[in-house]
């Protein structure tokens, strides 16, 4: 099958990018979208060009590394599918695909289709955990969790952190991602002690990162490879509003956003850096 690809090429964060047209004449419909780019890259290297940089790792839809826009839809046309599992059966001979990176100021572009999603890590670091140090745990069956609660926690915990929700949102909001983690931990009995502080901190961090606000329109959940429901956003809002109204202690954990790629010799907590 023949395809025309228009791929966003951009050498680095400070250079100008543009869509570049590539013609592919021999695409097998059993290939995945990423394998299609592999084949194109092999050709490009053969011609002495630089291959298209795109993020990928597990290629089985779980690590959350891959993802880009195909014709304006995050992860392309198939429901609940990351681009690594999107087979070319989803396209027809002669189709033209426009491939662009996730676009959001909180996801600065690194190169071509690769963006920096460390803002997601900082949202988790600000409170997306249960504070239980190793060795502190009671017997696993000491805390009973009703099956439907465990199932709901799992529905939210299935998030792979790919960023498609942000990419698809007209506001570039991280509400689905943040809501998923708040819901996963917030419905479980283990997560109750920190439930309010978690909502306050994670929401504050998401705001600090420069994500937009949620307008409840549902584009995020429609492209989510794990079909995380909008319900998690409502739960985040509920926890956040309840926490904001009831809190006494105003201390909230947030982390200064950064975009530089720091290296070891500049690290403060390296007691052996003596030079």
């Amino acid at each position: 099958m023949r395809l025309t690809l228009h791929v966003w090429r951009q050498q680095g964060p400070r250079t100008k990018g543009r869509l570049v047209r590539y013609q592919m004449d021999n695409v097998d419909h059993e290939m995945s979208m990423l394998e299609c780019l592999d084949v194109l890259n092999e050709e490009l290297i053969g011609k002495g060009d630089e291959p298209i940089a795109f993020e990928h790792d597990c290629r089985e839809g779980i690590c959350g590394s891959c993802g880009f826009m195909i014709n304006g839809v995050a992860h392309g046309p198939a429901r609940a599918t990351t681009v690594c599992q999107l087979t070319m059966r989803n396209f027809k001979d002669g189709d033209s695909l426009t491939i662009e990176p996730w676009r959001a100021s909180a996801f600065p572009l690194i190169k071509d289709l690769v963006v920096d999603r460390r803002s997601f890590d900082r949202i988790v670091a600000s409170g997306g955990y249960i504070s239980v140090s190793t060795g502190n745990a009671p017997d696993a069956n000491a805390i009973l969790v009703p099956k439907d609660i465990a199932d709901r926690a799992m529905d939210a915990a299935a998030c792979i952190g790919c960023g498609a929700c942000v990419a698809a949102c007209p506001n570039a909001s991280a509400a689905l991602f943040t809501g998923a983690k708040i819901s996963h931990l917030g419905v479980l009995p283990q997560g109750q002690p920190e439930r309010h502080l978690r909502a306050l901190s994670m929401v504050a961090q998401a705001n600090l990162e420069g994500f937009g606000g949620c307008t409840n329109i549902g584009e995020c959940t429609a492209v989510c490879p794990k079909e995380i429901p909008l319900e998690v956003i409502a739960r985040m809002n509920r926890d956040y509003i309840a926490a904001a109204l009831s809190q006494r202690d105003a201390e909230v954990n947030t982390i200064r956003p950064f975009t530089e790629w720091s290296t070891g010799s500049k690290l403060v907590n390296d007691p052996h850096a003596t030079s």
Binding site: Y129, V132, A137, N141, V145, P146
Partner: peptide, 22 residues
């Protein structure tokens, strides 16, 4: 044994019986 305890305490949503046990 300890691993399961630790993970359950962290909020890993292991599969459960209706009674709430793992």
């Amino acid at each position: 044994l300890e691993i399961i305890d630790q993970c359950a305490a962290q909020g890993v949503p292991f599969a459960r019986e209706y009674g709430g046990a793992l």
